[in-house]
Structure formats: C-alpha cells, structure tokens
C-alpha cells in the first residue's frame, strides 16, 4: 500500500482519535432475531452486523449429513448498501473465502460430535461495513452460537492488529486498512488459548509479526469481555450487573 498521509499524529492519536492499543466502541445485543435459535447484533465502530444461528436441525440435502458429527455451514454476506459503492448482492470471491475462514475459525470451538447427522447454519449479514468486518462477524457469530445453546468448548473472540506508520496498533479501522501497511485479523479462544484464525495482508518483519500476534490476542481478550457481558445481560439481566458492581 502506498502511504499518502500520516495516519498517526504527533500526539500518537489515530485518524479516529484512538490511541494505538484502544479498540473501537463495541456493543453486542443478544437475541435480536426472534425466529432464530440464537442471534446477536454487533456494532463494532461503524460496523453493523447481524448473526443468526439455526440448528442443530435436519440436513438438506440429506447426503451432506455426516454420520459421526454435525455439519457446520457458514455464510458471510454483505448487503448491497453496506459499502460506499453499491456491492453486487451475488457472493463475491472475497465473501466465499471469508465464509470459509469464518467456519474454520468457529469449528474448533464447537462440540460438533454431540449432534451427529444434523446441521448448524450460521448466517452473518453485514448491514454496514467498516474495517474489520470479518472479525466483528466471527465475534457476533460465536455469541449467537452460545445463545443458541450449542455445546461449546470456548467462545471465539476476534480482533485485528496491524502496522500503521511503522507502529503496531490494535483494531485497524477502514482508513488504516486501505492506507496502512499491514492488517492481521486474528480469532482466539481465550480459555483454551488457541488461535483459530490468522491472516495477514502487508509486510512485517519477524519482531513486528510476533508483536502483532500478541497485540491481536490482547485485543481478542478485550472483545471477549464484551461478549461475556452481552450474554450475561440476556440470561441473568441486571442481577449480575449489580453483583459485578459490588
């Protein structure tokens, strides 16, 4: 990527006023879609993404069923009005790839062997896109899966880190994604301490690479706190809030 302007000012503030290790504002609401078995709506900076889970349910077509475990199906899709220029609603190659990495990021967290011959469908719709929609999508999908009561080993939290103006910063926004030097989306299971998604676009040396992974993992842990609170809020309401305050 070519550098056109400075993305970090002399006070260390980024284009949206954040410091290097600050996340954008995250808000997660659980159970927003009444018909779904589990759902979540996430606002991650300017991202607005809804995730819905259906299942475990019968597999159609039937030949796709697996006798020893459940089939997980994922779709990441952007609405035509989610971007600056209208996006063709047909799935692009980018969306096909993201659907795949998203499924692979979620699969390690699920006990699919508990539901043989069934399917779990995860639909992620991006209503408004800002940088980092795949991370926000995975984060919301994992909350929706928990909301659906699927047996899970851990929750999956996702966050990107990257290099902007030769500095490693957390949670790359849209401008930094387009004009910055490197973007590394990471998904992480905070209790099992395992990385389930790792991608990198852009050039990093070995120290920066290691630092980037560590920063992203830190970001994932912060995202996890928001996920946990959102789920607590739905299932235990204000009761827990009071307890936590004490």
């Amino acid at each position: 990527m070519t550098q056109t302007r400075s993305l970090i000012d002399e006070n260390g503030k980024r284009t949206d006023g954040r410091t290097g290790d600050q996340l954008r504002e995250i808000k997660i609401t659980v159970g927003v879609i009444k018909n779904a078995d589990g759902s979540a709506f996430i606002e991650f900076g300017m991202n607005k993404i809804v995730a819905a889970v259906y299942g475990p349910r019968e597999v159609h077509p039937k030949h796709m069923a697996l006798s020893d475990r459940c089939v997980l199906r994922c779709r990441y899709h952007m609405t035509p009005f989610s971007t600056d220029t209208r996006k063709n609603p047909a799935p692009s190659r980018r969306e096909v790839e993201i659907s795949k990495v998203m499924r692979e990021a979620l699969e390690p967290s699920l006990m699919l062997e508990d539901y043989p011959r069934a399917a779990i469908d995860v639909y992620v719709e991006v209503l408004q896109a800002d940088g980092g929609s795949r991370c926000a999508g995975i984060t919301a999908a994992s909350v929706a899966l928990a909301d659906a009561g699927i047996n899970m080993r851990d929750i999956v939290s996702a966050c990107a880190a990257g290099k902007v103006d030769d500095r490693i910063v957390l949670d790359i926004n849209d401008t930094e994604d387009k004009e910055g030097d490197a973007d590394m989306p990471v998904a992480y299971m905070p209790h099992l301490e395992l990385v389930t998604l790792l991608q990198l676009d852009g050039v990093l040396n070995e120290d920066q690479f290691n630092q980037c992974v560590e920063e992203a993992v830190k970001g994932c842990k912060m995202v996890y706190e928001v996920q946990r609170k959102a789920l607590m809020q739905k299932y235990f309401g204000n009761e827990t809030e009071l307890k936590e305050e004490q």
């Binding site: 699969e107 395992l194 790792l198 050039v203």
Partner: peptide, 21 residues
Amino acid sequence: DQNFAAVQKGSTGAFTVEQLK
C-alpha cells in the same frame, strides 16, 4: 528481505501462539 507479506491459517483446528511464532 525475509519479511512476512501474507499469512493464511486454514482448516478446522487451532494453533497456539508459540506454534505460530
């Protein structure tokens, strides 16, 4: 220059941070 330019994790398992490094 022996710098990293692209990474893609695939398949349905996970890695520890140590394994990735």
